[in-house]
Structures are given as C-alpha cells and as structure tokens.
Design a protein around this nucleic acid. Structure first.
Length: 791
DNA sequence: GAGTTTGAAACT
DNA sequence: CAGTTTCAAACTC
C-alpha cells in the first residue's frame, strides 16, 4: 500500500492539513466524530423543525412528497454550481489518480478541495438559510437520503441543512437496517454521526456476520476508507463500492476488501471497477452535487474522494449499521448512489440534463451516459440486465417502485438473519450480491429497509413470512432487469409480490391522478407499469409536480399516507394484540359497503389497520380492528355487528387516546404532536397475504414510515408479520414504552412533516439498546440525538 | 387473460 | 356536503 504515490499524497495531505483551510474544513467535516453528533442533532432538529414545505403533504406522506420535492430540491441553486464544479473536480481528481499522477493531483486536488470545501461551507451556509425550503423538503430529502445514498453524504455536513436531509431517510433506513440487519453490539451513535467512520463501525460492529470484517474493518474501514479515499482518490468510493460488492461476495475478510479497495486493483475487480468507475464517476458527481446541495462539508473536504468516502461512510454509516460491515458500506454507497441517481432521475432529471451538458467533463461521457440513462428514466431494463455489473445504470432508473419489489426480495433473504434487520441488510446485500450493482437494488435496499422497518415495527419476525416473498423479490428484481415493463406487474405480483413495487395499470388517468398508485405514492411510473399515456415520469416532472400541487391544493393530505401506523402500535400489539384496536388508522376511513372491510377494496384492511370511527363502512369486519373498536382479529367468517360503532366509537376513541397517551408518553409528545399520527396499536393481521402489504398508502409514522410511504410500504409489516409480530413486539415494545425512544420514534418525530421536533427523549434516550435489532435502530437514532444536545 | 366487483377519487 | 361519474385495483372465473 505504501506506494510512493500514496506517500506523496500523504505528504500533500499533511501539508494540506496544516493549512488553515484544511483545519477549518476539518472542523466542519463530518469526519470528526463529535461533529457528526452535531449533524445528527441538526438533523433531528431540522427534521423536526422543518415544516412541511411546498408539498405539504402530511408528513406521513412526506415520502411521496419528498420524492417529488426532492426532485425539485436538487435543482436547488446551490447544487448546480457546486455540482458542476465538484463533478469536474472529481473527475479531474479521479482521472488524475487513474493516471497515476495522483501525487500531483492530490496536492492540487487537496487545495482545490479545500477551496471547494470553503465554498461548500458557504454553500452550506446558504443552505442553512434556505433551510426552510429544505425543511419542507426535508422529509423528502430524508426519503431520498434514505433512499438515496447520495444524500446521506450530507450527513457529513455539520450544518443542519444538509444534515437534515440525510437524517431523514438515512436515519430511518439506517435504523431499520441496523435493527434488522445486524444486531449491533457496537453502539456508537456518535461514530455514526461522525459521518463516515461511524457507519462502518456500526456496520461492522454489527455482528451480523461480518465479524472478521468488522474487527479489522470496522474501524479500519472507516478511517481507512476515509483516508484511503483521500489517498487512493481515483478509485475512490465508487471503486470501492463496486469492488466491495464483488469482494464481499467473494471475500469474507474485511481486510482483504480494504486492500482490494485500496488497490482497486485486482483483475476481476478492476473490471468491475471499470464498469463501476463510470458509475462511480457519475455517482461522485452526484454526490458532490448532493453534498453541495446539502451544503455538506464533505465537498469541502479537500479530497473529493474523501467526500466520496465520507459519503460512503455516511451512507455506510447508516448502512454500516448493518451487520455486514463492508458489504453494507459498499452496498450502502452503491445504494446511495443508486438512490441518488434515482432521486436525480426524479429530481435531477431535468436539471441534470441541463447540467450534464454543462458540467460534464472528461468523464462526462460516462456520467452523461449514466445520467442520461437515468434521465431517460429509471428503467432501462436493458441497462439493468446488461449492466448488472455496472450497478450504476440500473440504479439510476430505479424508481422507488422498483425498490419496492426489490424490497420484498431483499427483505426476503435473511441469510444472517437474526432478525428482520438483518434481513433488510441481507436483502440489500443479497441484492448486491445477486445483482450487486444494480442501483435499483440499492435503492431498493433502502426502500426495503423502510418497508422492513415497518415490519420490524410491527413485528420483527415478520421477515420469515416475507422471506418466502423474498425469493420472489429476487425474481422480481430480475424481472425488473430483464423484464418487459408491463408484463412484470402481474407476474411479479403473484410472485411475491411485487408489491414492493408499485405498478400501475392506468389507462385514462395518465397516471396523474390519485387513481394511479404510483402517482399517489409519489413515485414515478416505471417499466413494470402497464400504464398508458403515462405522464408520471421524470420527463414530465413539471406536469407531475403541477398536478400534484393541484391535488394537494384541493386536499393537502391527498398524498399523505392513507394509513398511519405508529411504531407505538407495535408495542401495544406486543402487549396485547388482540386487545388493541387497530394500531394504525386510516386517514379518512373507509366507506366499504360490500366488502365488509375484509378485502383489499377496503383501504383500511389493505393498509393493515383497523377501521375506526371515522370509517363509514357498513358491516365492518375488518380483521385488524373493527370500527366498533373490537380489535380482535376477526375471522372473516365472523359476522359482525358492524354497527355498534356509534356507541363503541366513543369507547374506541377513549381507548385510542389512552393508547396514544401511553405511547406518546414514551415516544414523546412529539409523536402526539404530529397531526397525522394516529397511534393505534396494530392488531395483528391475519393476513397471510404476505404479499402485499397494503398499498403504498400505509405508512408508519415512524421514520420507517417515510419509506413506507411509498408504495414500497406495501410490504406491510402487518401483512407479512402477523406471526412474529407479537413476539417481536414484546421485545421491542417494552423499550419503546420505556421511553427508549426507538429511533423510529425519533425519526417520526423528526419527520419534517410531523414538524415535530426531535423529542428529547428520543435523542437522549437513544441509547444503544439491548436488543439486537432495535439496538441498532436506537443507535442510529441516538447518534442523531446525541449530536444534538446530548444529555 | 378477460370480465366483474368494489370503493376511492374526481367531478358536479 | 351529497350525489354521481370515473377510474383502476382487487377479485373472480
């Protein structure tokens, strides 16, 4: 490793470090553990503070909105400049490195980066000023972040603006991921906060399986990556990512991975890298953009690579939380990238198209290609199939929808699986492994995580049920890759449901009405959709946004999740599933007359929630909870008196209130504060239908909710969960109740939509917890909280 | 795969 | 707000 180049680089770095600018940057840089903490805080605070913005869909819905919003956001003035510059720089850096001129470039790069960093800092500041916007977007951002790894990087940003975005999704995702994926013994929220390093540690720290990796790698990875990234620059994170995927697959040793990454050399890997490199490049640019947009300091970092690494780290941190250290990281990074792309696709599509032309430099070709593909849309089955290696392309096109299906798949595999968490992780990993590179997978992963979260929330064990679905999920994924767009839908559906992804079949609505599930979910239609005359595509972003606004103007909650499920519910469920009424509530309530709320025609049922007083259903037999308040899962056979609701309705309310109170007490008033949130304990669900979770509309209030908000949510925990549900709940609930605000709760509170401010509890309490899965979540969450005020 | 049922969304 | 129409998913065959 000690190549002269590196030495030079090191020297350059050292010099650079000496420079006041560097110091300044360092101060800002997320790398530092302490700062990361700030970030988290800021994030929390921001997230909380951030009010719903333009898209004001209810917070719960924020996902959806965020998506759309995000798209807009990206275009934020900040990004363009920086992004373009960063991209160029990045390329220059990478290329230079590639050319083995690293040393020179390094120094120069460092300077540049430093300068940039400064500029970035300014930018970030600006962003902060614009936080209001971001706040609005935050939810979205979060989503994207979560979804889009790229945003994660912002985590690095000390400044709240960027952080805010990251925390959103990233946190939620991370949390879940961790929970599911790994049991992180390591509780180092701070590390996470720190940005890069934290992630890895967690991930590695996570036991999940990567022990070997972890030992060597966790810390190593973080630092090493960060530094290596600086040093190795060219290969940068991107390479790593690509490499990692394969490496991880092949190699169990973290160290090896490290080396590999560093060297970025080995043959096959190189090839991959080459493929990835392009992707990486694009990703980098994206990241830089993201960073800039976020105002992340990452960009400010002297080494772009550093930025990447940081991003990776940041991403990885979230991901890392995953049991699988490196894999997660890589995956994460990849996923993030994929997500970014995806986001970009949505968000940036227009922008990029423009920007690409302008910004693209030497590497532009690759970038442009990638982006173009992305712009074209997520899709590109061809790309996917072809590029599985490249990861990049597929990722780009992937829409949340795509993710959704993936998610199923992802969640499915539980290799490690101690818990659902792992599942998510594993899923992601598996995805990575399988297709490793497809961004879709990545995005999917994030998504899946969210969905899984729900599962986790509702019940950790759900996974098993889903597992079955998981396989299908893969299938679905593959389908995605291969598939012809339309056919997939139904094929997938049966499988495992594709639910994960939402596909619509709109013929007349042009996918611009709420009839369209995709549109309603805030996601663009993708290949699998069988829609006709679809305008719900990145290409028609403006139209989509306008339409969305119109609809929201009519009904601000139109895009809000129809079903709000609070994590709380889970606990309750755990406590007494049968007793508890529906954990979640349907936003509006259903109006079923013939289905007795026993079929998916019923939104409540579909959402896995019980009917509530607000429902106007007739003959309600909702297994999740009747309108009358009877929570018992009723078998379909039961005839029910639907009606007593009026009388019982009051009781229900009272019950609900009490439940709420309990939950709120623990969770924090914040939860209660959220307007939307309904916290009812979930009932269990009878569903066997694993498949699908209710439509996208179900959302958990919790952080996971963001993701779930998407259709992805479909994989309702409830659906799959029912079994494990209780058990899990038992474990988890207590803590939650205790007041260890689960990260989720925190997230929820943090949710921009909720406006709720981070509940101190969450932050404070966020102690890494005991439970494997949950702990992770908590950790992740805590980290954020810790950042802020720590007790 | 086609047709029917269903209830939300959209419209009046 | 209520009634009607439109729409697409869910369901059935």
């Amino acid at each position: 490793m000690d190549t002269p180049e590196r030495n030079q680089i090191n020297t350059a770095l050292s010099k650079f470090e000496d420079s006041p600018v560097f110091n300044y940057i360092n101060n800002l840089s997320p790398i530092r553990p302490v700062k990361s903490a700030h970030i988290t805080q800021t994030f929390n605070s921001l997230s909380f503070s951030s009010p719903p913005s333009v898209f004001t869909s209810p917070h719960v819905t924020s996902f959806k909105e965020s998506r759309f919003l995000r798209r807009h956001n990206p275009p934020s003035p900040l990004k363009p400049k920086d992004s373009s510059e960063d991209v160029n720089k990045v390329y220059s850096n990478e290329e230079a490195l590639a050319d083995s001129t690293l040393s020179h470039h390094n120094s120069s790069e460092l300077h540049e980066s430093a300068d940039k960093g400064i500029s970035v800092g300014d930018v970030s500041i600006e962003l902060s000023s614009e936080q209001t916007k971001f706040s609005d977007e935050l939810p979205q951002a979060l989503q994207y972040n979560c979804g889009s790894p790229g945003y994660d990087p912002p985590i690095c940003c000390d400044e709240g603006s960027t952080l805010l975005e990251l925390p959103g999704e990233g946190v939620s995702n991370v949390g879940y991921v961790q929970e599911e994926g790994c049991k992180n013994d390591l509780d180092e929220p701070e590390l996470h906060l720190q940005g890069t390093s934290p992630i890895d540690p967690k991930g590695e720290g996570s036991d999940c399986g990567w022990d070997g990796l972890i030992h060597n790698g966790a810390d190593m990875l973080i630092e090493a990556e960060a530094f290596k990234g600086l040093i190795q620059k060219p290969l940068g994170s991107s390479i790593r990512l690509c490499d990692f995927v394969p490496l991880q697959q092949s190699a169990s040793n973290s160290d090896q991975k490290m080396h590999m990454v560093d060297s970025a050399a080995s043959g096959s890997e190189h090839e991959i890298e080459n493929h990835c490199s392009e992707l990486v490049v694009t990703a980098d640019t994206d990241q830089t953009q993201d960073n800039l947009a976020n105002g992340s300091f990452m960009t400010s970092n002297p080494n772009e690579k550093m930025d990447h690494t940081q991003d990776n780290v940041a991403n990885g941190s979230f991901m890392t939380s995953n049991p699988n250290g490196k894999m997660d990281n890589q995956l994460v990074s990849v996923t993030h990238r994929g997500i970014r792309r995806r986001c970009l696709d949505f968000e940036m599509a227009g922008v990029r198209k423009n920007s690409d032309d302008n910004s693209n430099t030497g590497s532009s070709t690759t970038q442009s290609e990638v982006r173009n593909s992305a712009d074209e849309k997520q899709l590109l089955p061809a790309k996917r199939s072809a590029n599985s290696q490249k990861c990049i392309l597929p990722g780009i096109g992937l829409h949340l929808n795509a993710l959704a299906p993936l998610k199923d798949g992802t969640g499915i595999q539980n290799r490690n699986l101690t818990s659902g968490r792992q599942l998510s992780l594993t899923n992601s990993t598996s995805l990575l492994l399988s297709a490793c590179q497809e961004h879709q997978h990545l995005s999917i992963v994030s998504v899946s995580v969210s969905s899984e979260r729900e599962l986790d929330l509702s019940g950790n064990e759900v996974q098993p049920a889903e597992d079955s679905s998981l396989v299908p999920a893969y299938m679905a994924d593959e389908d995605f890759n291969l598939n012809s767009p339309k056919k997939k839908k139904r094929k997938l559906e049966p499988v495992g449901d594709t639910e994960g992804c939402k596909r619509c079949n709109c013929k007349k609505s042009k996918c611009l009405k709420l009839y369209c599930e995709c549109f309603a979910a805030g996601v663009y239609c993708i290949e699998p959709c069988s829609c006709q005359d679809c305008f719900n595509k990145p290409v028609h972003e403006d139209t989509v946004l306008q339409t969305r606004k119109q609809i929201e103007s009519r009904n601000p909650l139109a895009f809000a999740p129809k079903v709000i499920r609070s994590a709380d519910s889970v606990p309750e469920i755990g406590i007494d599933p049968n007793k508890t009424p529906a954990s979640a509530r349907h936003k509006r309530g259903c109006n079923c007359k013939k289905s007795s709320c026993l079929k998916k025609y019923c939104e409540c049922y579909q959402g896995g929630v019980g009917c509530s007083i607000g429902c106007r259903c007739e003959g309600c037999k909702n297994a999740f909870g009747r309108k009358d308040g009877s929570t018992s899962i009723r078998t379909e056979g039961e005839t029910e008196e639907e009606t007593e609701t009026s009388d019982k309705g009051v009781e229900e309310k009272a019950i609900q209130k009490t439940e709420f109170q309990n939950i709120e007490d623990h969770l924090d008033s914040s939860m209660a504060a959220t307007p939307l949130r309904i916290s009812r304990p979930l009932l269990q669900m009878p569903f066997s239908s694993k498949g699908k979770p209710p439509r996208s509309f179900v959302t958990t209030i919790t952080g996971s909710g963001y993701f779930t908000s998407q259709k992805l949510a479909k994989p309702n925990p409830l659906w799959s969960q029912s079994k494990s549900f209780q058990t899990v709940a038992d474990d988890e609930m207590p803590e939650i109740l205790r007041g260890d605000s689960s990260p989720i709760a925190c997230i929820k509170t943090s949710s921009p939509n909720g406006k709720r401010i981070s509940s101190p509890n969450c932050e404070i309490r966020s102690s890494p917890t005991r439970r494997g899965g949950r702990k992770l979540i908590l950790q992740s969450i805590p980290s954020f909280p810790s950042l802020t005020p720590r007790p």
